[in-house]
Design a binder for these strands. Sequence first.
DNA 1: CCTCAGGTACCGACCAGTCGGTATGTCCGC
DNA 2: GCGGACATACCGACTGGTCGGTACCTGAGG
Lengths: 191, 191
Amino acid sequence: MARRSTPERIVEAAVRLFAAKGFDATTVQEVVEAASVTKGALYHYFGSKDDLLFEIYRSLIGRQMADLDRIIAAGEDAATTVRRIIVSLVETTAESVDETAVFVREMHKLDAERMAAFRAERRRYHETFRAVVEKAQADGTFSARVPADTAVLIALGVVNQLPTWYRPDGPKPPSRLAAEIADFVLAGLRP
Amino acid sequence: MARRSTPERIVEAAVRLFAAKGFDATTVQEVVEAASVTKGALYHYFGSKDDLLFEIYRSLIGRQMADLDRIIAAGEDAATTVRRIIVSLVETTAESVDETAVFVREMHKLDAERMAAFRAERRRYHETFRAVVEKAQADGTFSARVPADTAVLIALGVVNQLPTWYRPDGPKPPSRLAAEIADFVLAGLRP
DNA sequence: CCTCAGGTACCGACCAGTCGGTATGTCCGC
DNA sequence: GCGGACATACCGACTGGTCGGTACCTGAGG
C-alpha cells in the first residue's frame, strides 16, 4: 500500500492541482483521481472542497508562525533577527511553492469566519516583525528613512511573490536566494 | 444613456467583479447585470469570457510598457531612472488595483499562445530594468552586493503584491507610498 | 431593406455533494 | 472464544442546480 495516509495523499494531490490550474478550475473528481482514492474517501475526511483548501492554508501558516516565534524567542540583535526571519520565510516558501501559490491566489475565497482568523494571524506576524524593525530604528541600529510598516510590507511582499518566478530547478538554491533577499532588505535598513 | 461605450462598461464591470470574487466565481450573468447590458451584447463584442480577461491584461501591460519606454528614452542617470520606474509602476498599480489584482491572481489561466506573448513582454520589461541596474553596478554608481536580477525581482515583486494590502482610502497617498518604496530600493542599491 | 447593436430564451455539459451500501475491525458480556 | 452491537473507512452511481455559450429575434438608422 501507499506510504502516506489517505487524507495526506488527498491534500498533496489537491495542492498540486490547485497550484497548476486554480481552485475553481480543479474538479473534485480530478483530485480523487490524482490521489488514487474515491469521492467517498474524500468526503469521509473533508466536509467540503473548501475544507480542503483551508487545510492547505492552516498547515502553511502554522509552520510560518512557529518559525517566527522561535526566532523571536532566540532574542538576538535586530539585524540577525531580521535576517533569520527573511531566510526562514524564503526557505519555507521555496520548499512549499505550490502551497504558497495556492494561498496567495485563492486566499480571498475563505468564508468570513476563517478570513477573520487568518487576518488575525497575519496581523500578529506583521506586528511582531514590525516591532523588531521599529525598536532598532528607535535606538539607531536601523535607519528610519523608510517607515517600519513599509519596510515590513516590502519584505513580506517579495516573499509572497516568490512562487511566480522561483523555480526549484533554477540556478540559485533557496539558501542563496534567501541570503540575497536578506542582504537587500538589510541594506535598505542600514543607517 | 450611459457615458461610456457598451464594451467599456462591460470591461469595467468585469474588472470590478473579477477582483472582488475571482474570475471563475463570477458568472457572465453577473457581469452583464453589473454593466446593465445583456448577454447578447457581451457576446457581440467579446468572443468568450476568457477574451474579456485577456482584454484586462492587454490594457494594463500596454500602459506599463509605454511608461517604461518613455522613462528609458528620457535617458537620465541610473538613480533617477530607477526611481521613476518604481514611482510610475506604483502609481499605475495604485490607480488600477482591481486590474492588477485580477492580473496577478488569474494570469496563469491564459492559453498557451497568449501566455507566450505575455511572457515575452514581461521578459522585455525585466531585461530593460535589469540593464539599467547592471550598468550602474558596473560603473560603481550602485553597489553590486546583490545581483541585478534579484534586485529587479524584488522591486517588481513588491509592486505586484501591492493590491493585497493597498487601500485607496488608506492613510498614505500613492505618491507617498511610491516615494517610500523607491527610497527603500535605492537604499538597497546604494554603494 | 439590410446591417449592426443589442435582446431573450434556451440547451447541453458539467460538477459538488449525497446517500445507500460494503468490508473490516474492535470491544464486551456471557 | 464467540456472537452481536457498533464504529471506522471507504465505494460509486446519481442528482439538482448552475453556467458558458448559442440561435434566433427586434428595432433603428442609412
